[in-house]
Design a protein around this nucleic acid. Structure first.
Length: 303
DNA sequence: GTTGAGCGTT
């Protein structure tokens, strides 16, 4: 081969760099990539057709067109276009997932007739789509309905439809909305990294055992500890070996044995700003998010 | 046994 080096550039107009060829006249893609990280091939403008042509690439070896690299300038190919689009899609869907934009969440049903049962709710909402969970909130002493409840659907489309209209249930107009406890998560930015591996599991029922919690949370990652306070206090702690697993679960509503439990970070109450904002209807989400970040700068021992 | 624009036994 006459040429020991071929001329390669980022594009046709930029000053090319000379890249060494192998003894047999081929050029290794790895050699190109050493100068142009991420390169996946070469192309050049054909003097004959004036079109861009690809350089033959076989098993990491670039072959000279017509056995001669000549004095053409070769342009580096990157997988960039596809790759970047993929990355953006992944990031976007990850954010969407994390923000719960296309995830279902529990919906509060307001204005239920006192007589409406969970079976009534299930029968009614099943006409919109698959129902995961229904609840009628009742006075613990009397068992009387408090006139509101919750429902959770499998499909986000179902949830959207249900939110968008009023509902005639047992002779009363009812509204379904995102509960206030969800609004924070809807508007908060991406979470700060969590430093701890422990999650708080709220709204547990008394029949949920430590073993069942362990079995359930194993699907997300290695569980190193499960703690249920005695006597019953309607919450539990689950510790993972990986803090990213714990972090990813925070803000979720998960269904365990048909019960919707709420996952949040296991910070002591006095140091958890979520507690301060979570039941305050008029709060500013951005303010809450700002305070939320500050709590991680002053970590205190866990419960 | 009561009620009605409400938010889930941390």
């Amino acid at each position: 081969m006459a040429e020991l080096y071929i001329r390669v550039g980022e594009d046709e107009n930029e000053e090319p760099m000379e890249i060494p060829s192998e003894d047999d006249g081929t050029v290794l893609l790895s050699t190109v990539a050493a100068q142009f990280p991420g390169a996946c091939g070469l192309r050049y403008r054909s003097p004959a057709s004036q079109c861009m042509r690809g350089v033959r690439l076989v098993e990491g070896i670039l072959h000279a067109p017509e056995n001669d690299w000549g004095s053409l300038v070769y342009v580096v190919n990157y997988p960039k276009d596809n790759k970047r689009k993929m990355d953006e899609m992944d990031a976007a869907s990850a954010v969407k997932m994390k923000r719960g934009i296309d995830r279902t969440s529990d919906l509060i049903i307001l204005g239920l007739p006192w007589k409406t049962s969970e079976q009534d709710l299930k029968d009614y909402f099943a006409t919109f789509g698959e129902v995961i969970m229904v609840q009628v909130k009742r006075d613990v002493k009397t068992g009387n309905s408090k006139g509101f409840g919750f429902v959770r659907f499998t499909e986000y489309e179902t949830q959207s439809k249900v939110i968008s209209q009023r509902h005639m249930i047992d002779g009363r107009w009812c509204d379904c909305k995102l509960p206030n406890s969800k609004v924070f998560n809807q508007y908060a930015g991406p979470d700060e990294p969590m430093r701890n591996c422990k999650i708080f599991v709220g709204r547990c029922t008394e029949d949920i055992t430590t073993d069942e919690l362990r079995q359930f949370f194993m699907q997300y990652g290695e569980v190193t500890d499960v703690f249920i306070p005695k006597p019953f206090r309607a919450f539990a702690f689950v510790t993972f070996s990986d803090d990213q697993v714990a972090s990813a679960l925070c803000g979720e509503d998960l269904i365990i044995k048909g019960v919707s439990v709420h996952i949040s970070n296991a910070e002591p109450k006095h140091n958890n700003i979520n507690q301060l904002f979570s039941n305050f209807p008029g709060r500013s989400p951005s303010l809450a998010a700002m305070f939320d970040r500050t709590q991680y700068r002053y970590p205190s021992s866990h419960v």
